[in-house]
Each structure stands twice: as C-alpha cells, then as structure tokens.
Nucleic acid binder design. Sequence first.
DNA 1: CAATAAGCGAGACGGTACGTCTCGTCTTGCT
DNA 2: AGCAAGACGAGACGTACCGTCTCGCTTATTG
Lengths: 188, 188, 188, 188
Amino acid sequence: MTDHRQGPVRSEAARLAILEATARLFLSKGYDHLTMEGIAAEAGVGKQTIYRWWPSKGDVVADCLLDGLLLPDSLRPQDTGDIRADLAAWVAGIFLVLDRPDGEGLLRSIIAAAAGNADVGRRIYEGLGASSSMADRIRKAIAEEGLPADTPVEEVGEAIVGAVILRALSRSPIDEAGARRLVGALLG
Amino acid sequence: MTDHRQGPVRSEAARLAILEATARLFLSKGYDHLTMEGIAAEAGVGKQTIYRWWPSKGDVVADCLLDGLLLPDSLRPQDTGDIRADLAAWVAGIFLVLDRPDGEGLLRSIIAAAAGNADVGRRIYEGLGASSSMADRIRKAIAEEGLPADTPVEEVGEAIVGAVILRALSRSPIDEAGARRLVGALLG
Amino acid sequence: MTDHRQGPVRSEAARLAILEATARLFLSKGYDHLTMEGIAAEAGVGKQTIYRWWPSKGDVVADCLLDGLLLPDSLRPQDTGDIRADLAAWVAGIFLVLDRPDGEGLLRSIIAAAAGNADVGRRIYEGLGASSSMADRIRKAIAEEGLPADTPVEEVGEAIVGAVILRALSRSPIDEAGARRLVGALLG
Amino acid sequence: MTDHRQGPVRSEAARLAILEATARLFLSKGYDHLTMEGIAAEAGVGKQTIYRWWPSKGDVVADCLLDGLLLPDSLRPQDTGDIRADLAAWVAGIFLVLDRPDGEGLLRSIIAAAAGNADVGRRIYEGLGASSSMADRIRKAIAEEGLPADTPVEEVGEAIVGAVILRALSRSPIDEAGARRLVGALLG
DNA sequence: CAATAAGCGAGACGGTACGTCTCGTCTTGCT
DNA sequence: AGCAAGACGAGACGTACCGTCTCGCTTATTG
C-alpha cells in the first residue's frame, strides 16, 4: 500500500512564484512592509496557498534566504593570501552592499526577520547566508598562512559578524580603519 | 527673554504613564505585540496624546530604553580583578537575563525594535543600555591589570556585544566555555 | 454563459445581521448617534464587511428603509369613504407615531438621513416609505367619492407630506383642526 | 442694585468673527462638514470662546440664520398683483438659489441643521428665514386680489414650503408647471 | 489705583469614530 | 486534493473632532 493521495500535488510553479515574489518585495520594501497579502497578489496566488505551506511571513523569508534569493554571492571573503586584509575588506565592504544608514537597509531588514523568526535567525547564524565561508577562509589561513592552530574559528567568525550586526543596528558603518582594528584584535 | 508660550503645557503625568505602560507591555508581550492602542489603553490616555509627542512605536520604546525602564542594572560587568573572567561571566550571564530560546526574549525584542527604529539602534550601541560600562571595565584592565595599552577598546566591546546579539538571533546561547574562548580570542 | 465568478459569495447572513442591527440602533438612538462601529459590533460583523457593500452610513439606512425595517405599516391612510377625514386623520396621526417634540424623533432622524444621503431622500419621496399609498387613496376618491378629476394627485400628496415634514422640523405637531384646514385648502 | 460682575464683558468682535466664519464655512462646505474646530480656526478664536456662548454647532448655525448670514434676501415672493403667478415663481425660483441636485445643496444643509437642532427648526418654520413674507403676500392677496377671506394662510404657506423641502430632500426640483399645479391646488 | 475676576487665544487632554489595512480562516468553483 | 479568488470576523493603524481643561495675557469694575 503506497501512500499516494488523490488529487493534485504541490504546485512547484506556485512555490517558486511565492518565493520570487517574496524576494522581490523584501528587497524593495523591507521586512516590515512585507505582507502576506502583498506576496499573494505579487505572485498571482491565493493567500491560502501560502498559508498551506508556510506558517508565517518569517518562514517564507527564511526559505528565500535558504534559496539564496536575498543575499548576493559577493558576500564570501576574498582570498589574497592575507587573512587580515581579506577579513577587514569583507567587513568594510558589507556595508556598501547591505546597509544604508537611512531607510530600510537590507541587512537591518534581515535582522528584523531574524528577531521575529527562529528559522531566519538560525540561517543567519549558519553564516549570514554565506559567511560560513568566512570560517572556511580562517581555516585556510591556519593551514597556509601561519595563523595559530588554536585560533577559535567559530568564535572569531561570530565576533566579526556580530560586530557588523551591531553597527548595522546603530546605523554607523564600520570604516576601513575600524575594520582593521577589529580584525587585529581578534587575530592578534 | 525665554520662549514662554501661552496655553497648556505638556502633561508630565501623561508622559510618565505612557512610558511606564510601554515598558510594562514591552516586557510582558515583546516588541511585535506591542501596539499604540494597547499603550494608550494601559496608560489611560488618548491615542492622540501619544502621537502628539512620538511619531511611532519605536520612538516610544527608544525613550523607555533611555529612561532605563527596559533594561536591568545588572548588566554592567563585575570587577573581580580578572578582566577575562569578568567579561566571560558577563557574556554567559546575559542570556540568563535577557534571552529565552523560546518565546519573545527581551533581547530579541530590543533587537527588533532597533532594526525598525534608528533611535533605538543608537541607544543600543551607546552601550546595550549599560555596556559602555564594558568599555570602562576594559580601560580599567589596561590601567591596572596589565592589558596592553593598544587594545582597541571600542572594537573589543563591539565584538563581544555583537557576538551576543548574533547568538540571541540564532537562539543558541553562548555557554561558559564559548564565552571564555571568545574573550580569549579578543584579549590574546 | 453566465458570469459566475469563482470564490466565495456575499454572505446573506451578514447582510441581514447588518440591516437588522442598523434598524435596531436607528430606532433606539437616532440617525446622528448611529455609527458604523456600533452597527458592526451590534451585528457581530467586521467593519470591512459593511464598507465592502455600502459606501456610507446613509446607504445602509437607505437599504433598511427599502426593506421596510424602519417604518411601520400603519402609515397608509385609512379608507372610510371620506377622503378629507381620512387624510386629516393620517396627518394628525403621523406625529403620534413618528415624532416626539423632544429628543430624536424618528421622522426627524429620517429627514436627517435624507438630507445627507440622496438614496434615502429618493426613498422618502417615493412615498415616505408608504405614502404613495396616499396617492392611491386620492385617486380612489376621484373615482368613487366625487373628487374633481383634474385634482393634481402628486402635488396634493407632496404638499401634505411636505407640511408634515416642515412641522416635524419645527417641533410643532399639526393638531386635528390644523390637519383639517390643510386638507380643506388642498381639496377645496 | 444691578448685578454687574467685574471683569471684561463679552467681546463683540469675537461674536461677529465666529458668526461670519460659521456662515463662510457653512456655505462652502455644508452643515455636515462644519466643525467647531474649523469655526474656531477660521475665526481666529479659541474653542472655549464658542462653547462659552453656544452649547452646540446647531446653535451657532441658528444664530447665523437669525442674523441673515445664510439666506439671501431674494427669497421673498414678488408682488406683480397675481398671487398665483408670484407663488409659482417663488417655488420654481428657490431651487435655482438654494438647491443643486448633486453636492451639498444649501437648502438641504439647512434641513440637516434643522433636523439636528430645535432652534434651527423653529427659525425655519418662522419663515424659511424670510418666507413669513409669503404669508404677508397671501394676506395681501386676500385684501386686494379677491382671494377668499377664509383661505387658511398659515396652512397654505406651510404646504408650499413643505413641498419645496420634500422635493429638496428627494433631489428633484419642482419645475414651472409643477409649481403652477401646486399653487393651483392650494388656492383653488 | 490696586486687587480681582472674567473673557480671551491657544492648545493639551481623554475619548469616540472614522475609513483603511492586514491578519489568518473559510468558502466556492475550477482543474 | 490543490489552486486562484476573495468574503469573512477581528483588530490595529493614524487622523479628525468632540467637549473640557489649563495656561498666561488683557481688560473692566469695584473696593
């Protein structure tokens, strides 16, 4: 006895339309002004189709995040062979991409989503979408650039991402010099 | 020549009632479920009296924060003479006070408020309500406990508070060992 | 091919609840103190459900009037075979039913509604709810009681109803003698 | 022993400013959209100064009416020596001055005021502002134009004004022919 | 000629209702 | 059974006015 139910199966077209509409609206209006009704209308989908598969706005956004529809690929640290310079550049650069001191910066919108939804929060932790690539970069530096082997990779990554988040909340981007001081303090 | 207007003056009683009602509701229900109507009702005040003086919910919360109605005093780091132990204890302890993995942790509620409102964000940065006292604690360690004079105090403080915020968002508190590793990485 | 939309259809239960609640509140509190919120609460209905189908308070009242929920049936003139006596009795009697010199007389409330809403106004004209029956009565008098055939039925009816309205506005009911003089002047 | 209190006496300037502002706003926006706050602002007067002397909006409007600030003088019937023609002309003409089928006709606004306020109602009855002059015109016709002496002057006047009001409420002006039929029915 | 008290402009106050928006659920007819 | 459409009860939004009150100023009468 297989468990084939009768009737149609989940529509992949609807799922995609919803996620893409969500990403579009999130990027243009921010998390706060994103509404379920707006998503349904933008996706050309009944509201019930959203509620059938996702319990809340936050969960839809979490899925967007997971599918990489919200964050650009440019978030992974470069590798020039100088770990300190690469991390400092990442920190200073992220504000150019994700944050505007005024308005609904994308980073702040994601933080708001994370504050309201556990899944989004966990996704963020699993690397600000992509920055577990930061842990990779640090490990590579341990292996090849002479960074001490007992460097606590996780904690260093969290401290960097955390400092960025704090500054995003306070609307005061970290500049080049600040980024170097931060990385210097963490990597000795 | 002072600018004495004629006519009635702002009611201090109403101002206080509003801030206290806001604090009460914020602590019991969190930022998301806080409403202007609820504040007005709880304070025994007309809605217009709130809108007359604060443009949005976030601004009322920001004033609460400023008045110290939201955060306990227990947030300042202790001073046992051992800077690493004191900071690690602060980090591990803050989750006991401000965060519950389930529900609307107070810290996450404040983060949500900060994400939506610039004033709240700035207040947080000016020390998570109280943690500029953390900078003070670090400076004291430079002066008296042999911490290197070139330790970038601001950045270290931000990294610690930022890591805490990141973990609050991801619903995974920092434990004792993690706190020690974090502080160790920052202070060498 | 009829134009069957898909999706839910207007709820007859809600429509009825709204009209009945409106009638109840109109009769107990008058037009001025009737509110959309009050209707919604009394009907156990969301405000949007009212606004979805009626643009304003006046239009809801107009529908009540049309459905006969506001005016009693006793408004049609009697037929004793004496047109003058019947009309005079109707005039004198209407103040007993619809008007109280103090307070929010029902007739004045309907006048207020008519002044503010074209639909209500037209409904009133189409017979004070029922008084086109007055025209019928006059025509019957032409046919059977020897009233001149060139009596301008419409104008006589309007003059009578108009006089009643004017006296309702001025809070001075027409008494028996006045009613007889009025009818006498109109029917010669 | 006169009861002269001490202190300043009622400001005539304020009284006039209020009545004139009320008339201005009434004529431009109608009774419904007239507000006490609007009157105060337009008159450059404190709200309390209005409430000190008039208990409600309706009473201010009633005073305007009494002072002749709302109705033009052109409302008195002409005297060409032909009572029927004069009254018919008055009826047909009044819609040109006071009523527009759409919008907030002045006559309908006054009716609304009368429905909500006893004083306004009585003022209207005392002659639609000026039409007790209509009774004068009818009496003159009795004296000089051979109208029967037992014509019930009051009732005829009320029937005419009432018919006009009814038609104003129903948004269907009386035309020349209708006016002649009405007057004919009333004066034989 | 003070002292006194009322009127005044201004406008904050506790409220009520407005008309709109979004929530999450439910219903309908189509596929 | 899933779907688009969209009505439904609920309730918060931010605004407009209500009628009362308080403030500091001006002005007339009275002791």
